[in-house]
Simulated scan of single mutants.
Amino acid sequence: MALQQQIRTRNTEQLMSIGIFGLLVLLYAPVLIYWFNGWLYKTISTEHEYFSHGIIGLPFAAYLIWENRKKWQRLPNKTHPLGAVLLAIGAIFYLTNVTEWVNLSLPTILVGLCLWLKGFPGLKLLGFPLLLIFLATPTAIPYLVAPYTFPLQSFIAGTAGFILNQSGMNAVVDGINIYVNGRIVEVAPYCAGLKMLFTTIYVCLMLLYWTDNLSSRRVTLWFLSTAVVISVIANIIRNTILSFFHGTGQEAAFKWLHDSWGGDLYSALMLLSLIPILNWMSDYFSAPLETELESENQLLPPEITD
C-alpha cells in the first residue's frame, strides 16, 4: 500500500509539472518568440534591444534549470505563502496587456512557482538561472537611465576628440558633439555604451558561474570592475572609429559598425577578451589560498595510527 501511494504521489507530481510547463509554454511562447525575433532582426524597440544578451542568457538559464531537475525533485514539497502572492501579482501583470508588465510577469511567476512548490530551498536552488531570466527581461530601465548619461557622453566625446587630434585629424568637441572635418557626430544617450555595459556585466556573471568563481568575492569584484573599465574603453574606441569613418566620408563603414553586424562583431571580440582575464584572476587569487592551506596542513600534528 505504501508503495502504491508513493507511485500515485509521484505520478501526480509529474502530471502537475507537465501541466505547469504546458501552461507556461502556452502563455509565454509568443512573448519569447517576439523577444528573440526583435533581438535577432533589430525589430524590437531601442530600449528593449538593450536586453539582447538574453539570446544566450535565456537558453543558458533553461539549461541550468534542466540540469538541476533531479535536485529539485529531491527537495521536499514546502509551500511558502509569498509564492501565492507573487503568482497573483504575476497574473495581474500578464492580464494588464501592457508590454512592460507582461514582460515582468515572467520572472515574477517563475519565482512565485518556486516558492509555492518548494519554498525558499527551491528558490535558492534555481536562484541563478532565475536571475539570468530577470536580467534578460526587457524593461524600461534603459529609458529611465538615459537622461543621466550626459557626463558619460561628454567624457566619451572629449576622449574620442583627443584621440583624433593626436592622430593628426582636425576634431572639435562641443559638449557631446564631435566635429570632424566639418561633419558632426553626436554621442547620443544610446551611444554612451549602456548596451555594451549591460551585456558585459551579464556575460561576466555567466562566466563567473560557469567557472565556479561566483562564490569568490575577490574574483567577482575584481573581474566585474575590470570588465566595466574594459567596456568603457572599448566604447570610447568604437566612437572614435565611428567619428573617423563619418568625418572622412566612409559612410558604408560607418553604417557597418554602427547599425549592422560590425557592432555585434566588435562587442563579441571584446567579450571574448574577458575569458583569459578571468582565467588569470582565478589562478592569481587561488594561489595564495592554496599556499595558506598548505601552511596550515604543515602545522597540523601528524596522525597517530595503530
Rank of each mutant, 00 (worst) to 15 (best):
A2M: 09
R8F: 06
R10E: 09
Q14V: 12
L15H: 14
M16A: 13
S17I: 07
V31R: 05
L32N: 06
Y41K: 06
K42P: 00
T43N: 08
T43F: 04
T43R: 11
I44W: 03
T46L: 14
E47V: 00
S52M: 13
G57T: 13
Y63L: 13
E67T: 09
I89T: 12
A91D: 00
I92H: 08
T96V: 02
T96H: 01
E100N: 06
E100K: 02
W101D: 03
L104E: 04
S105K: 02
L115C: 10
F120P: 02
G122M: 07
L123Y: 03
P138L: 03
P138Y: 05
P138I: 01
T149V: 15
T149I: 14
T149N: 04
F150T: 11
P151E: 06
P151F: 10
S154V: 15
I156C: 03
G158S: 13
T159C: 09
T159E: 10
A160L: 03
G161Q: 07
F162K: 14
G168V: 10
M169S: 06
I176Y: 04
R183M: 12
I184F: 00
A188Y: 03
C191K: 02
D212H: 11
L221E: 06
W222G: 02
A227H: 03
S231A: 15
A234K: 04
I236D: 02
I236N: 01
I237W: 06
G249K: 05
K255F: 09
W256C: 01
L257I: 04
D259M: 11
L265F: 15
L269H: 04
M270Y: 04
S273C: 11
N279M: 11
L289E: 15
N297P: 00
N297R: 12
Q298E: 14
Q298A: 14
L300Q: 13
P302D: 15
